[in-house]
Design a protein around this nucleic acid. Sequence first.
DNA 1: CCATTAATTCCATTATTTGGAACTGAGTTT
DNA 2: AAACTCAGTTCCAAATAATGGAATTAATGG
Lengths: 263, 263
Amino acid sequence: MMANERDEEAGTGTLGKAMAVLETVALAERPMRFTDVLAVSGQPRGTLHRQLSHLVQEGLLELRPDHAYVPGLRLLKLASASWARNEFRAVAAPFLEALHRQTGETVHLGVLRGREIIYLDKVESRQAVRMNSQIGNASPVYCTGVGKAALAALDAEALDAILSGLELRRFTPQTITSRAALLDELAQIRASGIAFDREEHEPGIRCVAAPVFDAGRALVAGVSVTGPAYRVGEVQLDDWAPRVRHAAGGIMAELSARLGPQR
Amino acid sequence: MMANERDEEAGTGTLGKAMAVLETVALAERPMRFTDVLAVSGQPRGTLHRQLSHLVQEGLLELRPDHAYVPGLRLLKLASASWARNEFRAVAAPFLEALHRQTGETVHLGVLRGREIIYLDKVESRQAVRMNSQIGNASPVYCTGVGKAALAALDAEALDAILSGLELRRFTPQTITSRAALLDELAQIRASGIAFDREEHEPGIRCVAAPVFDAGRALVAGVSVTGPAYRVGEVQLDDWAPRVRHAAGGIMAELSARLGPQR
DNA sequence: CCATTAATTCCATTATTTGGAACTGAGTTT
DNA sequence: AAACTCAGTTCCAAATAATGGAATTAATGG
């Protein structure tokens, strides 16, 4: 109960510890003050204080006049470059747009990182929600379309490494919360090449996804079309499935064509 | 000529050096290999190699099979949180949208960070360019509307600190490249509360901007409306100026109302 | 296959981080 | 007003991690 406080990487080395502190603060729901960080970081006062000071000095955090630490702008600058120059994203973009044109709904591209899905890109259905709040967002693997698609592309060993110790938290009544049921589902996804999310993560949100992977680049990802349940029925999802699979196939083909040869 | 290779922060401390390396790689136009980084980092082989390894281990960089270092996904995750939880952005968002509705053109919110403007948000004119490629982007202060607006909000001392040693590189025939001319321009902006960018940064792009600042929060920023020269004449810019100034005023009022009291 | 360049590993030296404790200063209670 | 509390900051000897020159191994290409 207290062992998995920072279960991803345990923050080894000076940089690792600094990043652990940064992540704690940056991902916190609300601004944290020194004592708040101290409570969860498990580090001595002096040490933590210096780490925070260094992070502030580097522009990764900002210290507001009211002593609250908030994420700094340097992160944005770095991430912007990281996004703009991401080759995988660039290769996939036209396929995402095509898929959006065909379906009219929101299209996502998500990559597996550790035990999470990170959304790399999206094409919005309209500008309703207005922003790529989603890009860079981390979501669970086991209850999102993209996540399950990505899991299905893994070999047994890699899959086990991710699932072992992963808590299958319930988000909605449909969330898969048993390991056995998840493995069944993944087998089905492997067979059909298609993953569905039937309101398993957010109530009222459905989605069809297909895996995208590339052994040479050790890349495991997924594409999906997402829509509100009132507009997108299960029949509609089935109908879109081939297009989603086709887009995924196109991305993979393009990947090996564009990036493979020169490997 | 070789002194200002890393002129912003000189990367002191272990974290600072690591960040300097990260920035070098993340902001590079193209993927860098070990030797490429070595050439510009000015550090011994062993040292640099370990630093890069640590960055890879932390997910801030990725090492591709072809030995090229590329920005890692963890940056996106951190930046996404940083963006989503930024209070200033949240306060400004409705004003940006109003400005977009009034003008129909692209609206930007940019913040001064060091000697650069970092774009915090934008509302696109249409989905032509499709993505917030701009968000997190760093642009020069002296030849963008938002940048000049922000500079005009600074006191003499702060302004001097930024301008001293800043190279006024020419981007277009209209770029202001003399310090004196820039100071004149800033005086004019201070007087009128409005900054123009008359194709000074990118040919064919014009913009009106107004400063947004808050002494209490040590925040210096700007809002702008940007459009292509063929569609947006100088008369049009003049016409929009009051609205832009009004939006900037609204943001400042809201800032002190929402965040001021509880300081 | 050999020559050459690039990438990685090694390890004694050096610099930085560590962490317990003491200090400061603002706000609160007696 | 003095005593108390709590959050934040500073200090410094000991422990730890980073440094960097040189040797080793892997990749490239002629």
